[in-house]
Simulated assay, not measured.
Amino acid sequence: MLFGLIVVCEVAFWVLLGAGLAVRYLLRRRRLGGLLLLAVPLVDLVLLVASVADLRDGGRAEFTHGLAAAYLGFTVAFGHDMVRCADVRFAHRYAGGPPPDRRRRYGRERARYEWRAWGKGMIGWAVACGLLLAGVVVVGDSDRAAALLEWAGRLTFAMVVWLVFWPLACTVFPTRAPRDAQAPHARAPHARGSHPDRVPHGTGEPK
């Protein structure tokens, strides 16, 4: 049942996000759209309350309890960015807003971007692990809470892999922009049928 609730919360997240943006930009009702967007975090609160209630019934913590904690943690870390990204794209398409930033990053800029993303991931890791440890306290038995501790180990391993293969890799081995992106733009081609060395007739220049 808890896994089904996680799926429902994920669907509700996108439904509320889409409804809020549609009301804000298509119906031009910014206040109502803002209220719908503010309701997005309530989805996470519902999942948190359901998870705690399920653990307080005296049952054994399962894989889905750890998944719920991970989902909540990384939603806290990246949910705002997802809403902001969707808002920028929706505003650009339907309200004449500025276009989203789609440029590719190289070198130090790419490394800074990866470090910022990993830092947000660490916020999600901290929130998720805090919820997992709180679940262990709620269960009150390390044996019945073993699944929660296993999830803390999985998330820690995932963050170490992310650190090594993205931020550190981009710092030690910085990516370089393609040569065509570094070189100045080529000279615009001449009009069809013209030649840069051809002298037009009637200019008085020697043939």
Rank of each mutant, 00 (worst) to 15 (best):
G79C: 05
R105M: 09
G153Y: 04
G140F: 07
Q182E: 15
S51A: 12
V172S: 07
V8D: 11
A134P: 07
R154A: 12
G121V: 05
G18E: 06
L5A: 08
G107A: 12
V160Q: 04
R108Y: 06
V15P: 01
P184M: 03
A181K: 15
M122N: 10
V139A: 03
L37F: 04
L67M: 13
W166T: 14
R116M: 10
V137F: 11
G97I: 05
V49E: 12
G153K: 13
M122P: 00
V164G: 12
S194H: 13
A145T: 02
A70F: 00
W14P: 02
D141F: 03
P100K: 02
F165S: 05
F3M: 13
P178E: 08
Q182A: 15
Q182Y: 11
L155T: 01
Y71R: 05
L48E: 00
H185S: 13
R102T: 14
A12T: 05
A145C: 07
Y106F: 15
L132S: 00
P206R: 05
R56M: 12
G18N: 08
V136M: 14
F90R: 07
L38M: 09
L17G: 03
P99V: 01
R24V: 05
V136T: 15
L32P: 02
R108I: 08
V40P: 01
R116K: 10
Y113Q: 14
R56Q: 14
G140V: 09
P178S: 05
A191F: 11
V46E: 02
G4I: 03
V23M: 03
F78E: 01
